[in-house]
Design a binder for these strands. Structure first.
Length: 464
RNA sequence: GGUUGCGUAGCAAAGCGGUUAUGCAGUGGCCUGCAAAGCCAUCUAGAGCGGUUCGACUCCGCUCGCAACCUCCA
């Protein structure tokens, strides 16, 4: 029985979809004005894993993740670059797709874009005005009147009095209430715009997600996800907008993933302490990054450091090493391990425990070389998007920058040369010339190549 | 100031009111020409102070420390 932590109730709940066997899930995606960083990677990997597991449980999942392709930062960046904002967003959408492909993140079923949803956005704002949840401010912008929505603050546990007491709220004279937020923004000179009943302008960020999710999944749907930081105000505002417009319950279950941190501090653009996915992938293989992300629970903070990535590499290497040289019998799965794995995942997607189950399989597999256990390991790991590579190619993989041919990071030596050296060492061993044999092995080790002799007289190798 | 969450061994990271988490690293063995990999064994725990309990890392309270949100942010 799958239990998921619901931010709305702050407790784990038994997951019950609105329609038996079907799940509608929406996740707030990226604002595409720059490359994705590791924090974005976490959202992609976490919810990809959620979808994989729901599908493994035979749910018919419709996974929607939007693209915010119009907003202040995009306009600002496009102006800086002196390029059309469309050209900018297309570039970063392509880059985002490259990053997620690298991380074995399956594409969402629907990727709506804000700029393709303007009609739906305008229709929703019109409804909100008709229902008296929204008004046109003195500057022509359309605002949402938060005090009209009685449950405002239910998701984040805030109330309007506390919020108004906060000192970080800008006073905007065009609004009736400082907490009111913009639904439609009038275009300034030179900014991109769309026609609307309120004049030429563009949508506010929050209304985009309400319109896109409702449009793709209906007035009500099962799961809405995103980063912790979106809880307030973004998701709070989405609830106010969607429920204000439709009068129906918007979302049953809210999932929020924790942050990636660097030195105990949130990784973010504004703190300039972020690593982009493509930077990291020059140093670590993508599957290591995925393993690293799944090695802590999705709601916990995840500290990014070379040490933790190296640990992830060591762990993943152990998993792949166990699959080397074993027959995999696809037809059978060990029921006991399968059950333990499912228990872990059923407990709010507890991937660290699920990984621990995989390591338990490895210990037994290393002893027994059982084809059934090998199949169990590979099959369960696939639910996490791991271990689908060929073990030999994983262990011999030369990583680095394939564009520049800069492979020195874990050895620049070619396979031909390595095989040649191994043969020379085998000859030395046959002549019981241990000194030479050890010298060859040490030299290769210094170049990042580990040799392992097996009992049958063969020598195999892997890159560190 | 308000709200939310966290504090586990050398590092990372889980569950659990009483019984081995797990990975990396360490130590002792087995294996090996020696290694590596693997196997077996094993040492390091639960911020502090109270309370509940036969028994608490686990529940409750307080204190201290950390993070996030209250402004755009995954």
């Amino acid at each position: 029985m799958l239990k998921i932590y619901n931010t709305l109730t702050r407790s784990k709940e038994v997951f019950t979809p609105r329609v038996a066997g079907k799940v509608g899930m929406y996740v707030c995606g990226m604002t595409v004005y720059d490359y994705c960083h590791v924090g974005h990677a976490r959202v992609m990997v976490v919810f990809d894993t959620v979808v994989r597991y729901l599908r493994y449980l035979n749910y018919d999942v419709t996974y929607v993740r939007n693209i915010t392709d119009i907003d202040d930062k995009i306009i600002h960046r496009a102006n800086e670059n002196g390029e059309d904002f469309h050209a900018l967003t297309e570039r970063f959408i392509d880059a985002m797709h490259e990053d997620e492909d690298a991380l074995s993140v399956m594409r969402p079923d629907i990727e709506p874009r804000a700029t393709s949803s303007i009609h739906d956005i305008i229709a929703m704002i019109e409804k909100l005005i008709a229902n008296e949840f929204a008004y046109v401010g003195t500057n022509g912008d359309v605002f949402y009147a938060v005090d009209k929505f009685k449950n405002y603050g239910q998701l984040s546990g805030k109330n309007l009095d506390d919020l108004q007491a906060g000192e970080r709220v800008d006073v905007d004279l065009a609004k009736r209430n400082p907490m009111d937020f913009v639904l439609w923004k009038m275009a300034k000179e030179g900014e991109p715009f769309w026609e609307s009943p309120w004049g030429n302008g563009r949508p506010g960020w929050h209304i985009e997600c309400s319109a896109m999710s409702t449009c793709c999944l209906g007035n009500s749907f099962d799961i809405h996800g995103g980063g912790m930081d979106l809880q307030f105000p973004h998701h709070e505002n989405e609830i106010a907008q969607s429920e204000g417009a439709t009068g129906e319950k918007f979302v049953n279950l809210w999932m929020h993933n924790g942050f990636v941190r660097i030195n105990e501090e949130k990784m973010s653009k504004s703190l300039s302490n972020f690593f982009t996915v493509r930077e990291v992938l020059k140093q670590y293989r993508s599957e290591i990054v995925r393993f690293f992300i799944l090695s802590s629970h999705y709601r916990s903070p995840l500290n990014y450091s070379d040490e933790s990535l190296n640990d992830a590499n060591a762990g993943l290497t152990r998993l792949y090493t166990a699959l080397r040289d074993v027959e995999i019998l696809e037809a059978e799965i060990d029921a006991e391990y399968k059950m333990r794995f499912e228990e872990a995942m059923n407990d709010d997607f507890n991937t660290p425990v699920a990984l621990a189950v995989l390591f338990d399989i490895v210990r037994e597999l290393n002893k027994t070389k059982s084809p059934v256990l090998a199949a169990t390991l590979k099959s369960l790991a696939s639910i996490l998007g791991l271990l689908q590579d060929n073990p030999e190619s994983f262990l011999k993989f030369r990583f680095g920058d394939s564009l520049t041919g800069d492979f020195h990071l874990n050895s620049n030596l070619s396979e031909e040369f390595i095989e040649q050296q191994i043969q020379a060492r085998i000859d030395a061993k046959k002549a019981k010339n241990w000194g030479l044999a050890d010298q060859i092995r040490d030299e290769l080790k210094a170049q990042g190549i580990i040799l392992e002799d097996s009992p049958d007289g063969l020598t195999r190798w892997r890159r560190e």
